[in-house]
Amino acid sequence: MIDKRVASVHDAVADVFDGASVMIGGFGEAGSPVELIHALIDQGARDLTVISNNTGSGEVGLAALLKARRVTKVICSFPKTANSTVFPELYREGFTELELVPQGTLAERIRAGGAGVRAFYTPTAVGTPLAQGKEIRDFEGRPCVLEHGLTADFALIKGRVADTHGNVLYNKTARNFAPIMAMAARCTIVQAASVVEAGAVDPEAVVTPGIFVDRVVGVADPAHESALIAAGMSYPPAQPDRSERA
């Protein structure tokens, strides 16, 4: 019998090790697996390389993982948000290295990694600073840059429904990077609002087939970054100030 369920988000990320590479789904807050990221902060792994499109908002979720100084490198396409200074400060300080990748090249590198394609040529970024130092080769007279597939030790992604075999369905634009990250990671961990028995999901509707998923954990009412930020939250939550109680 196959049953990929684990009991808690903390169990799900327990074996993430120091120095691991971790793909984290999400585009902005849509699809960001906030509960898995907070569990990873609690777990304590450090010197992580994070592969994600953005670098988080406020001081929750991905931005909180960065703020906890657990991430020494990010591979991403757009490390800026209007409402977070966490990444810019770590970048300027030199604590967190940035590998900037065009968004489509990032997606294709992840897809290629998951599909066993070691590298590919693309015209995107030719003649720009992001192609500097990379091999250029002409195809039908058009210069293209060599880009390498990306894999990772872990992927943390968010689904709407997952079954015990690890088949996953998503919600609207929260799908974004999750299906390709699931393919590209050696251990893919899914948090899903609804976890169901095998057979409850129409096979025609499956977006990520279970072969790409290792662990499934139910998070019934997942938090959105914007709601946490609006509520003034940061993670880990601030300790009560004892001096004020005196």
Partner: peptide
Amino acid sequence: DLANWSTGEPGAIPAVGGAMDLVAG
């Protein structure tokens, strides 16, 4: 030629998103 993602200022956080893919494809 198009420049629309960076002024190349030192200390600025570079961010590109999908612009390079859009113009190439």
